[in-house]
Design a protein around this nucleic acid. Structure first.
Length: 671
DNA sequence: ACACTGTGTCATACC
DNA sequence: GGGGTATGACACAGT
């Protein structure tokens, strides 16, 4: 395990076999016998494994002839000394590193979606429920309704300028209860309106129809389908109400109401039958105000128009949901309608810049990966700029042998003499492209003894004759093979060091502190060439470790970024789910309001006890809690004016000083 | 044959 | 200024 321990501190980049092979290629020395004296019990096993692994190693031309063209001096030395290379070499293995990354390329749609999750819908819905309840208690509304002297009216009539006023639709005015603060309800309505407006601005009608009209069980589609010829006074169904264009028409508190020229009573209650067909068409095509218009009130309503009307709520749900919902997330995590999910998925397949496959794959985000990368990312990244090797070692990758030889080197002197080879082709296979936790590595028993040794290991000085097994104990052939393998595994610097008869190991050269290193140098009579080589070995060795650490940091950063992407995707999916819920609540609320409107309107009777024509009258919600019955023409005018100033709604929404609007009838006794 | 990946190395900047 | 570290770039070997 010592080897493994050391591997945890030495360069982790040796999981792959290329480097050992490089060393093999570079080296021309005779390898050390596998079991040198003093070596640990595992050494022989290691060597045997390595030998087996190297059976098919290509022993091509050395690469140093290319790499060191600029270092003529060293080349000369190499050439000079390689021929007379000694056979005693050891390769203290560097630590094995189990680093591989399993890049999680998670798909992330780049599309942006409007954050239109309204916050007050629940409250609004509740208020409306209560409103409905109260309204039921107050109905029917008698004839001879009075006009309030002070009215904060909310006109929802939808202007359809190309059509006769009488054919235009009315908006339902939410009804206030006297027990409830009108202002609160106004605010709720404003919230609702703002939501609808935002949605309407983005609405793609066709899209909305596709999404929400299609499902037969969809409350929207069903609830808005018209039940023709429904008696007015009977239980009102909300069929065929349309919310299309609600952003424009669904204005409840029209400031213009106050300023509207008050028509005479004649304009208020013209009980002129209207063309139901026109009404329906207008209502369906143009009116948001038509949202709450009860077509049933018109006995001649064209039932064919109903199903074709755009879903008034579709605009609230279509693009926002379609564009932004992570369909698979919804389907998987929330039991989202698979049909919808599949439909939506088609739309979003193309905009994914990243693949989500790996992110959802259990294997892609292994526990080791997640744990190591997550815990280490901050430390490694934060300390990367200023940290030394030790700081890097403290990072998550220290477990993976990311950080050099460092402290262990001195305790591993014996290892260096082992001549153990660290090439781990199998390990490399296992760990390639995935961060392998050291614990996982330990699960491979045979790998415990396989350390990495590619470069800066044993120096000739460590290759005492005592370290070598008695020649007699080894067959000549096997010995040659082993030594040959081991020799070829030596790094170029090791070969050079041995050729130059450097009296200490490369490991010491590289890892000793400066003071000790200088002291070590002072102990020996070294030539300039030797000193130069030693310093180059030290420089390269340190840089090698630095490169390994640098690469590990890079991987760590990538993993962290990937994890961040996943987190953001989860957040996005969650927000979208919440949005869907909000929209669902909004839809329910609208249905309630529509029902409320129809019920109220349907119970209204004129002086003769006849119901009012929805084509001629509309209900209007006053700020003081009263509900007004106003001529549709007036409502249309208000709607038109409002349409011109859609942005002023909020300003006047709080205005309640509508007084003496003669064009209205106040629905009395609403409370 | 080619692309990709891992690794070592060098050059350079920075501390 | 020397030593060490970090990192981009390059070359090479292996897959």
């Amino acid at each position: 395990m010592t080897r493994l321990d050391r591997s945890s501190h030495s360069g982790g980049g040796h999981a792959k076999g290329s480097r050992p092979l490089n060393s093999l290629v570079a080296g021309h020395r005779v390898a050390q016998p596998p079991s040198a004296p003093g070596s640990r019990a595992s050494v022989q096993d290691i060597d045997l494994i390595d030998i087996l692994w190297r059976q098919d190693i290509d022993l091509g031309a050395g690469r140093e002839i290319f790499d060191y063209s600029h270092r003529q001096k060293e080349q000369d030395v190499d050439k000079e000394l390689q021929d007379g290379a000694e056979q005693e070499d050891t390769w203290p293995g560097e630590g094995a590193e189990a680093l591989a990354r399993n890049l999680l390329v998670d798909g992330e749609t780049g599309e942006s979606f409007p954050a239109q999750v309204p916050g007050g819908e629940d409250q609004t819905a509740l208020s409306l429920e209560e409103c409905l309840r109260l309204l039921e208690a107050t109905c029917p509304f008698g004839e001879n309704a009075e006009f309030p002297a002070d009215i904060s009216s909310i006109t929802e009539a939808v202007p359809s300028e190309s059509e006769p006023p009488g054919l235009q639709n009315n908006l339902l005015s939410p009804l206030l209860t006297g027990t409830e603060s009108p202002f609160d309800l106004e605010q709720q309505w404003q919230d609702l309106m703002s939501i609808m407006e935002m949605q309407a601005m983005e609405v793609n009608t066709s899209t909305s129809e596709i999404l929400y009209d299609a499902p037969p069980g969809d409350p929207l589609s069903t609830n808005y389908s018209l039940a023709p010829n429904t008696p007015i006074n009977q239980n009102v169904s909300l069929h065929q109400a349309s919310l299309g264009g609600c952003s424009q028409d669904f204005s409840l508190f029209s400031p213009e109401v106050e300023s509207l020229p008050v028509a005479g009573s004649s304009t208020l209650l013209p009980l002129v039958p209207s063309n139901s067909t026109s009404l329906n068409s207008t209502f369906g095509s143009t009116n948001l105000a038509g949202l709450f218009f009860p077509p049933q009130l018109n006995g001649t309503a064209n039932d064919t128009a109903g199903p074709e009307l755009p879903d008034p709520l579709g605009g609230l749900l279509d693009e926002a949901m379609l564009d932004e919902i992570s369909l698979m997330d919804l389907a998987i995590e929330e039991g989202f309608n698979p049909v919808q999910a599949s439909q939506l998925e088609e739309e979003f397949d193309s905009d994914s810049g990243l693949s989500l496959d790996s992110s959802h794959s259990p294997s892609s985000l292994s526990s080791s990966e997640g744990s190591s990368s997550s815990s280490s990312s901050s430390s490694s990244s934060s300390s990367s700029s200023s940290s030394s090797t030790s700081s890097s070692a403290s990072s998550s990758f220290s477990e993976e042998g990311a950080v050099g030889y460092s402290s262990d080197s001195e305790t591993l002197d014996l290892e260096e003499a082992e001549g153990a080879v660290g090439y781990q082709p199998e390990y490399s296979k296992f760990c390639r492209m995935s961060y392998q936790d050291p614990s996982q590595l330990s699960c491979l028993p045979y790998l415990e003894h396989v350390g990495h040794n590619h470069t800066y290991n044993m120096a000739p000085s460590a290759l005492d004759s005592a370290d070598l097994p008695p020649p007699s104990t080894l067959k000549k052939g096997s010995k040659e093979k082993q030594t040959d393998f081991l020799d070829k595994q030596m790094s170029r610097d090791e070969h050079r060091a041995r050729a130059m008869k450097i009296p200490f190991t490369n490991d010491k050269i590289i890892n000793l502190p400066v003071e000790e290193f200088n002291e070590l140098l002072s102990k020996y009579q070294l030539s300039e060439a030797q000193l130069s080589l030693i310093r180059d070995i030290r420089r390269r060795g340190k840089n090698k470790m630095a490169a390994q650490n640098c690469r590990k940091r890079k991987l760590d950063t990538i993993l962290n970024l990937e994890r961040d992407v996943e987190d953001l995707q989860r957040d996005k999916a969650r927000l979208l789910r919440e949005k869907v819920e909000f929209l669902r609540s909004l839809r329910q609320m609208k249905q309630k309001v529509q029902s409320l409107y129809q019920e109220v309107f349907g119970r209204l009777r004129d002086e003769n006890g006849r119901p009012y024509s929805p084509s001629q009258y509309a209900l209007q919600y006053a700020g003081d809690g009263s509900v007004l019955l106003i001529p549709r023409t007036l409502a249309d005018q208000q709607a038109r004016r409002q349409e011109r100033k859609p942005k002023d709604r909020r300003k006047w929404s709080g205005c309640s000083s509508f007084k003496a609007f003669s064009g209205r009838k106040k629905i009395r006794d609403l409370k």
